[in-house]
Structure formats: structure tokens, C-alpha cells
Computed example of a mutant assay.
Amino acid sequence: MCETTARTELPLSAPNTFGCSCCSTGARTHPASLVEGFEYSLEGLTCAHCVQTIEKAATTVDGVESATVELVAGGTSRLTVAGTASVEAVRDAVTGAGYSVAASR
């Protein structure tokens, strides 16, 4: 049996939300810088591994502070990038990872 005495209690719900605090829609917050970043429409993503690959490729670009993918399996997913990286550099990183960028805005 483990002799660990210190435990961390995690909240099961956030105030004024439903569900646990880690997956409740009311508990999610994103840094304001994501709103000001570039958005890219991506095609060819089918799973969480695709998301991880794209986010990892985008964050390796100089000037990228964060990269988040909203997956739409079989459809057009969205990559949001915050930072000072050029649109072309992020596009090159995504295509270099084997995915296609449909548009950027």
C-alpha cells in the first residue's frame, strides 16, 4: 500500500456550470491572445492524433505563442494561432506535417 500522505483535492464542478470543471463548457477559458491570432481552415484531420501533430508543428514555428485546433472529423477543422509568426511560416509547418490548409484569415 502507498504511504503517501499528501493529496490534492480537485473540484468536481465549477460555480454556475454543469459537469466536472475540466470538461464543462462554462469552465473553459482561452487567453485573449487567441482571439487576436490567425485562423486557418484545415482539411484531412480525422482524430486527436492529427490535432496533436498540427499543434506540435505550429508551435515549433518561431513567434507562435500558442496553437489550438478545433477538430471537425471529416470536415473542415480550424487552427487558431496566437503570436507574431507569419501566415506563410505556419502554413508551411502544417503542410510539412502532411495536412492541407484550405484558407487563412
Rank of each mutant, 00 (worst) to 15 (best):
C2M: 12
C2I: 14
C2T: 13
E3H: 14
T5W: 00
A6T: 06
R7C: 03
L10E: 11
L10T: 07
S13K: 15
A14V: 06
A14M: 11
N16L: 15
N16D: 02
C20P: 14
C20H: 06
C20G: 11
C20R: 15
C22M: 14
T25P: 03
G26P: 09
R28N: 00
R28T: 12
T29F: 15
H30R: 05
A32V: 02
S33A: 02
G37H: 00
F38S: 15
E39Q: 12
S41A: 09
S41K: 11
E43Q: 08
G44W: 05
L45M: 10
C47S: 11
A48M: 08
A48R: 13
C50F: 08
V51Q: 07
V51S: 02
V51N: 05
Q52H: 15
Q52T: 08
I54F: 05
E55Q: 14
A58S: 04
T60H: 10
V61T: 11
V64R: 10
S66R: 12
A67K: 02
A67D: 05
T68D: 05
T68E: 04
T68S: 14
E70H: 01
E70N: 15
V72L: 06
A73H: 03
A73V: 07
G74V: 10
G75D: 11
T76I: 15
S77Y: 08
L79W: 03
V81Q: 07
V81L: 11
V81A: 11
A82C: 00
V87E: 13
E88N: 03
E88P: 00
V90C: 04
V90D: 05
R91S: 06
R91N: 10
V94G: 03
T95A: 04
T95S: 07
G96Q: 04
G98W: 05
G98R: 13
Y99Q: 11
S100C: 04
V101M: 13
